[in-house]
């Protein structure tokens, strides 16, 4: 798994590349924790190049959303979620906990 970062005026865009499972989720969780902890609590996660995400990744997202929402207008938003990941996300009942946008710029514009 790889994460790239792009700063916008009102939010931060992170692109997730590769696979997030129990092996890589701690690295993913740490990156999100570090971002929120350093004042980047308006986040867009671009999932267009994410091939795979297990419940370990869902849990990291949930923890990040909790942390971000403690700040004024803080939020983790998701963009370009691949269908297969979306379906599992839906089954896990996570869809209602996140705003999911069709593309990253739409999500950036939301902030």
């Amino acid at each position: 798994m790889e994460i790239t970062h792009q700063e916008f005026k009102r939010c931060d865009l992170f692109k997730l590349i590769g696979r997030i499972d129990s092996a890589t989720a701690p690295q993913f969780a740490k990156a999100l924790e570090k971002a929120v902890g350093s004042g980047k609590y308006k986040l867009v996660l671009d999932m267009s190049e994410l091939e795979y995400m297990s419940s370990a990744g869902f849990r990291a997202l949930l923890a990040a959303q909790r942390a971000a929402k403690k700040y004024n207008r803080g939020e983790v938003t998701l963009a370009s979620m691949p269908d297969r990941i979306h379906e599992a996300f839906d089954l896990a009942g996570f869809t209602e906990l996140f705003k999911i946008f069709d593309d990253p710029l739409q999500a950036v514009g939301h902030f």
Binding site: S54, S55, A56, F58, R59, L62, A63, Q65, R66, K69, A92, L97
Partner: peptide, 11 residues
């Protein structure tokens, strides 16, 4: 809701 969502058992 977000605050009460349990993290275990999901897998």
């Amino acid at each position: 809701d977000l605050a009460k969502r349990r993290i275990g058992g999901l897998g």
